[in-house]
Amino acid sequence: MVIMNYSNNMKLETKTIGNIFADNPKITSRNVNVFYHDKQAINNVSLDVGSKEIISLIGPSGCGKSTFLRCFNRMNDTIDGCKVEGNIVLDDQDIYHPSVDVVPLRAKIGMVFQKPNPFPKSIYDNVAYGPKIHGLASTKDELDSIVELSLKNAGLWNEVKDRLQSPGTGLSGGQQQRLCIARAIAVSPEIILMDEPCSALDPIATAKIEELIHQLGKNYSIVIVTHSMQQAARVSQRTAYFHLGELIEVGLTKQIFTTPQDKQTEAYISGRIG
């Protein structure tokens, strides 16, 4: 058991090896436990996400990294019997406080899913949907420019600008995923959560998305769950290794992949488990 110094001089109990803190934290999570009915999926995890930082969560299947990711925008609320304990603070606000409404929270924290899931609507409507429901654009021109900028930032504009009214589901897998990223950034979030965004894509599409993640990292905090250690090594500044619902080790990506402190981490990244 390592006792770490909390920023406000409180003591934090954690078994995690490495520095869980970020210099300029956007999200601070403390002692998070997640239960599905009686089964505990996340066990006492504490982790900071820095401002404009890309952090990747790695670990074997079923280790709880996706569950932990979905705590940040309260997507777990939609799952029956899921209970989240602990403290997750976004910009000084406890996001699990009863007074918090998930709608503005999710506008602030965008999410990209494992399988590209564009709405069965046109490309334009896919991107415009978020701004529309949140009332971000007051005129049609404003909405048009939001759609254009979002698609540009997602690196999709040149490919779709001539067919904005054609169905989003008619795009290729990689394009669909970039459309989903455009949809997420159209509501001007501060944080983007990505749940294995490339696992359904071919290497070329993956490379494009990774390049995009790299670009987006300049403006957003990004938390990415990935099964590919190469991907984690390529895109992220920090890496957190999960195993059986516990956060085993966290540190700078370079350090995790070259000199892991924990035996399990080492075994995983060298390909012996997972």
Partner: peptide, 27 residues
Amino acid sequence: VPPSILDAAYGVGASKLQTMFHHVIPL
């Protein structure tokens, strides 16, 4: 209606009612 559509709608911050009326019911 595929749950991925629900995820997508909730993910961009649609309320329950919006998710129902904009995405689920049309499908």
